[in-house]
Design a protein around this nucleic acid. Sequence first.
DNA 1: TCAACTGCATCGCTTTTTACGATGCAAGAA
DNA 2: TTCTTGCATCGTAAAAAGCGATGCAGTTGA
Lengths: 300, 300
Amino acid sequence: MQYTLRQLAYLVAVADHGSVTAAANALYTSQPGISSAIAQLEAQFGLQFFIRHHAKGVSLTPAGQSFVAAARNLLAHAEDLSQHASALSQSLQGNLELGCFTTIAPIFLPRLLAAMREDYPDISVRLHEGDTEQLQQALLSGQTELALLYDLDLAPSLYRQTLQTVLPYVLLPAAHPLAGQVAVSLQDLAPLPMVLLDLPHSREYFLSVFRLQGLEARVRHKTVNFELVRGLVAAGNGYALLNLRPQTPQSYAGDQLVCLPIVEEVPALNIVLAWPQELRLTRRAEAFVTLCERSISRLG
Amino acid sequence: MQYTLRQLAYLVAVADHGSVTAAANALYTSQPGISSAIAQLEAQFGLQFFIRHHAKGVSLTPAGQSFVAAARNLLAHAEDLSQHASALSQSLQGNLELGCFTTIAPIFLPRLLAAMREDYPDISVRLHEGDTEQLQQALLSGQTELALLYDLDLAPSLYRQTLQTVLPYVLLPAAHPLAGQVAVSLQDLAPLPMVLLDLPHSREYFLSVFRLQGLEARVRHKTVNFELVRGLVAAGNGYALLNLRPQTPQSYAGDQLVCLPIVEEVPALNIVLAWPQELRLTRRAEAFVTLCERSISRLG
DNA sequence: TCAACTGCATCGCTTTTTACGATGCAAGAA
DNA sequence: TTCTTGCATCGTAAAAAGCGATGCAGTTGA
């Protein structure tokens, strides 16, 4: 047998009241219950905690003194755990584990996190970047509570809240022959060399844009590095399809870029906030979801 | 309802094994038991600790991570309490609360405590000096576990272990007319002025020595201070009856004293080690009792 | 001295909780 | 598909907790 927290609470109450009966009254329970709890503790530890004075309550033995002090400490610790738990579910403080798709991160997160810090200064967001696969894995295993990513082949068990719908665009160097047009046709692009953003799911998505038109892209370069795609395009290594639009027309190298819409009708992508469907969100996570919803208008 | 330590242990085991079933096996209990313990904890705190993966166990949510860490901490603390308790009952270390009669203390304790430190260096004896009344009170209320005192009007609920039997003796200044005798008669003493050691019970005892002979002592001075009695006697203020014999024939003032036996048959006093009868001694207290028994021969 | 009272322990009973095997169900693996 | 895995639920059995009644030893107060 193992002792229970309740037994300890009874023990401490008896020590405080100097009487089993008084403790029972204070705890709104019966005297025999307290009595047997004490007896059990004493039996379990082979110690005598109280000296029984007939008709005059009980008093602590030296061993009892010492044990009660330790028991009090443990009970306080147990109380802490309850507090900790309520803080986890109730309070708007603590950690929020947030997953975010690599390329989405630099576009949206700076403002979102700033807004979070503004509205909920006591919530610290811990960021986990990764590709769709990794983010989904982290969500399902519970490493992160929320993830900001594309709605690309997500498990049906994930609930998705759409934040923004984005259409792919064509990225060209400013000096490109097609750069002067209002929009570019996939027909015109297909024969040209392409720079592919080579991330799981994204990869297939960009290629499918062509396939749906019965076309096939010619990939010259592949990279998982979004900014490298822009750099390669800017330097004349080909065109690229992308979804996200940094607000700068220059590559890191300083070359000029242009973004042009696609003439054909192409599948849009949803940027979503996702979490396991069966998981009840903490208040921290809810706060973030709400904040994202409110920020949608500003996100574009 | 309040959570229990067992529920926490189950929770932690599930977190460690990543599976309810595995935890049940490890703890030699049934899977439904674990399952419901988790469910109860989650319900109580309004939190979800695990994400259930069909046919693939469970994994911790962020809240679960945090809670399990805290739970582990509390369980470790609970384990500490058990350790603490066994240390209290089993180990020969820690505190021993010892009561000692004021006048007995300087005679016996120095050697006894030295022997204790020698044999049980990890037991620290905390000393409570006092008169019979105070010592008995401390024993019965549990403030001290043992007391070294005279067996004078002790409550029958105290168990007594006799360490030494002492006869009262007559204390005289070296220059006193009776000081040359081998023994002194109470008849000769009764008319002389007496210096009385005025402690509860001791007081009555010394006077009863005369009364039992049909005599009445003439008390000139009373004091609770043992050494003051010796000083007063040495300076010629009267004779005294005492039980304990310091091994020095001089008072603090440097005057010479002599101790003489009493001619008549007088009641002896027992120096005893006492403790509440119903109290099971700790191993520390037992160690002290044993050491006292062994030291009896040396005590004289 | 005696009767009334106090306060802890024990007993028997009821209620609640815990434990466990059986079963169901959903998703992964073959 | 079919089999397997693993958690949840259900019904029953065992254990524990709670409680009123009672006993008993010692205290209190007349």
